[in-house]
Design a protein around this nucleic acid. Structure first.
Length: 513
DNA sequence: GGACGGTGAAACTTCAGGTTGCCTC
DNA sequence: GAAGTTTCACCGTCC
């Protein structure tokens, strides 16, 4: 099919976007990095002359969706004012939601996005414009899987609105055009491979089968796997069996399962060997963390018994797990700085530092950087600071916090089972601090509903530091500091009923630890 | 002569995403 | 591999 697109600029993506808007339609533009999503959105928005009231409102909303807007928020807001948005994992979930909703209702015309939008989310557009079919990988730039290409094309055409939809792939050269035609337009999509073979998945699965008593013997376990898609695809049952045996050995080493009878131990051939999970194994399976992570936590707790601990200790421990990957990367120029910070915190490490010459050292340093970043967060550094200093965007920060929190909770649970009850309190505090990004001194104030790190800090600065202070505080001062509604609410939560007029306010103090 | 500023080319650097897990109101 | 960023040499200007 031949499209005639007016060449308003040198940039074919911009031209396509402008043309789409001109014919009154919408487009999704797929690119391969967050940065280029932002750049593309900016380039297009610069060419848009008009804005409207609705867009102004959405733009404000996006700008102010976190307490203190970051440069990313400002950039997003600027674009949206012109009806163009970018969308990637660096936006907060609130911002992403705003973009998605307003694309659906037609107010936003163009979204420039990373592959986020190709999967899962149902966001169709008249045109799906695919700018990049190659993406950076270990071996340089690599062509993306055909399946992914199909996913992106699948966004073209909105079932209830348009009779048709177009997927447009941009090729820079004719050689590229040929390659794209051959690989994507006429090529076959890849086979789907079972992910069960991936080690972390396999060991998680094996543990869960045992701890839920779904399988009771080695034989049960092998039988189970022989019926999976993995086995069907892989065919070589002998190899699978040996992998599973190795997994069992690991789980036993990690004290997550028990092989009940000693006599079975020596004889691998005996398939009736009963399998049972330990108490720890059962809990780990319920917590749904990687058994390897659970083992790391357990060992760190043992190590920690004769150590001084700080927030950094826990943050580094949870950072250096598969769950938290990808970690923040230590750039070439930061290397010395991070190394130095590590030296300063060395005595607080719960795990032992790998040798500088081991391959895992790089990832270890990354975990140090990641934990330093989380540490800054709980010291009340704002998102813009973290973006500038650590290159982490608000959305990514939130994602990391959520996973780290879950791992901290798991650590707390494991320490209960392993008889380290004194850890529990520390971790509970740390979790709250991480949730709010607040220093320890704000903890009492954070118990109030409607009070986050910002308001708590304001109150604290004005010598209102705990529930008692709130109770005794002058209401007019409170109103000045944090507004009328919140003031009345926290007065009530503090048990000071003397001002009470607002019967509808049922907020009560948050409870924890 | 030297400090400063602007310019452009060369040298570096970096690069997508995300499901459930738990509990506590 | 390519886009974006930093570095650096070079040149002109002003004091």
């Amino acid at each position: 099919m031949n499209l005639k697109i007016k060449q308003e600029s040198e940039n074919s993506v911009v031209n396509l976007a402008l043309d789409t808007i001109k014919i009154g339609k919408q487009a999704l533009i797929f690119v391969n990095t967050k940065k280029s999503a932002e750049k593309a959105a900016e380039d297009i928005s610069k060419r848009m002359k008009t804005t409207n009231e609705q867009l102004e409102i959405i733009s404000e909303e996006v700008l102010n969706s976190i307490q203190k807007p970051t440069s990313q928020c400002e950039r997003a807001a600027m674009c949206i004012k012109k009806g163009v948005a970018f969308h990637h994992a660096g936006l907060t979930s609130k911002q992403r939601e705003i973009v998605e909703d307003n694309f659906r209702n037609g107010i936003i015309k163009i979204i420039c996005c990373t592959p986020t939008l190709a999967f899962g989310l149902d966001l169709p557009a008249y045109r799906a414009i695919i700018k990049d079919l190659r993406r950076y990988s270990q071996r340089g730039l690599a062509w993306i899987p055909v399946l992914e290409y199909l996913q992106m094309c699948g966004r073209a055409g909105r079932p209830n609105y348009d009779m048709e939809g177009y997927a447009i792939v941009i090729a820079e050269t004719s050689a590229e055009k040929n390659k794209i035609e051959e690989k994507y337009l006429n090529g076959k999509s890849e086979e789907i491979y079972s992910k069960l073979a991936v080690e972390p998945v396999l060991r998680t699965y094996v543990l869960s089968l045992i701890s839920s008593s779904f399988v009771r013997t080695k034989k049960d376990l092998i039988d189970f796997f022989s019926k999976t898609f993995y086995a069907h695809q892989f065919k070589d049952m002998r190899k699978i069996t040996s992998t599973i045996y190795k997994t069992l050995d690991m789980l036993e080493d990690w004290e997550l399962i028990i092989r009940e009878n000693e006599e079975f131990k020596s004889a691998d051939a005996v398939e009736d060997e009963p399998l049972r999970s330990t108490l720890l194994g059962k809990r780990v399976s319920e917590l749904y963390i990687d058994p390897l992570t659970a083992d790391k936590i357990r060992k760190c707790l043992i190590n920690a018994s004769d150590k001084k601990l700080r927030e950094f200790s826990f943050l580094q421990m949870v950072s250096n797990t598969l769950e938290l990957r990808p970690l923040l990367r230590v750039g070439i120029k930061e290397h010395d700085k991070i190394q130095e910070a590590l030296m300063q915190n060395y005595e607080y490490l719960m795990e032992s530092e790998p040798s500088m010459y081991e391959p895992e050292y790089e990832e270890f340093l990354n975990s140090v950087k990641t934990s330093l970043m989380l540490n800054e967060w709980i010291e009340e550094k704002d998102e813009e600071f973290l973006l500038e200093e650590y290159g982490i965007r608000p959305g990514e920060l939130r994602a990391k916090i959520e996973i780290a929190d879950w791992l901290l909770y798991s650590t707390s649970e494991i320490s209960k089972l392993q008889h380290y009850p004194n850890m529990v309190k520390h971790i509970a505090k740390l979790r709250i601090r991480m949730k709010y990004g607040a220093k320890e001194e704000l903890l009492p104030l954070l118990k109030f509903q409607g009070i986050g790190r910002m308001r708590a800090r304001i109150l604290f600065r004005n010598k209102i530091k705990d529930i008692g202070d709130v109770k005794n505080a002058d209401l007019s001062l409170l109103k000045q500091l944090i507004g009328e509604k919140t003031s009345l609410s926290i007065k009530r939560q503090a048990g000071d009923e003397s001002f009470l007029k607002n019967e509808n306010d049922n907020a009560s103090l948050r409870e924890w630890g």
